[in-house]
Amino acid sequence: MTGLSGSGKSTLMNILGCLDRPTSGRYVLADRDTSRMSAGELAIVRNEQIGFVFQSFELLPRQSALKNVELPLIYAHGGWGSRRRRARRALERVGLGDRMSHRPNQLSGGQKQRVAIARAIVNGPAILLADEPTGNLDSTTTEEIMELLEQLHDEGQTILIVTHERDVASHCRRVIWLTDGLVSSDLPSEEDPAVREHRLRHLAEIEEAARAAGDSTHLITAGDRPC
């Protein structure tokens, strides 16, 4: 999901994530109308159906990676006995099996976001909502995180990414453009003109880089930032 600032990305994301309720219309998630749910009911839906990944990670600073990942399970129905095991498995899935007892300040940005992703998937959500998941990361780490998300997607996880980076958007199967609060385009990424253009340029860059690598050490800066 992409669009310019103020186009309504965050609002739609909040509604989809059951953090907010629509002022009009209905949002049906897994056959349940969430529009009239109380704050408590919405919290349970978030716990069971939604996993959040935020731009600024939002990890509890004083707690280990494992404790951070356990957080949603504390508020979950059942599964108290298997809490630690499930958190561990989630951390292994994101490739942090060797960083479980590290605190956020002992982890790099990419590792922090991996912990956040592990926390988002630990309760097996229907949708993983990622709000600018790579906004605070450099390009190399961005690639790593996108690979991880792609890998989760291949394993069957539905992922919704809110981004204004075409580079990130080009990883997705479907691209939704929002303009002034309305969906202006909703196409598979192969057909989305902006993504297409980006991919072509990206390919060209890679070719040029390959040529440049022949005679000199030329650094490639990946990704453009239209906004």
Partner: peptide, 16 residues
């Protein structure tokens, strides 16, 4: 406040 927001977003109900 941020921590409370996070806890709520991962499923802490108001009563908790």
């Amino acid at each position: 406040t941020r921590e409370i927001g996070l806890r709520k977003s991962v499923g802490a109900t108001p009563i908790v």
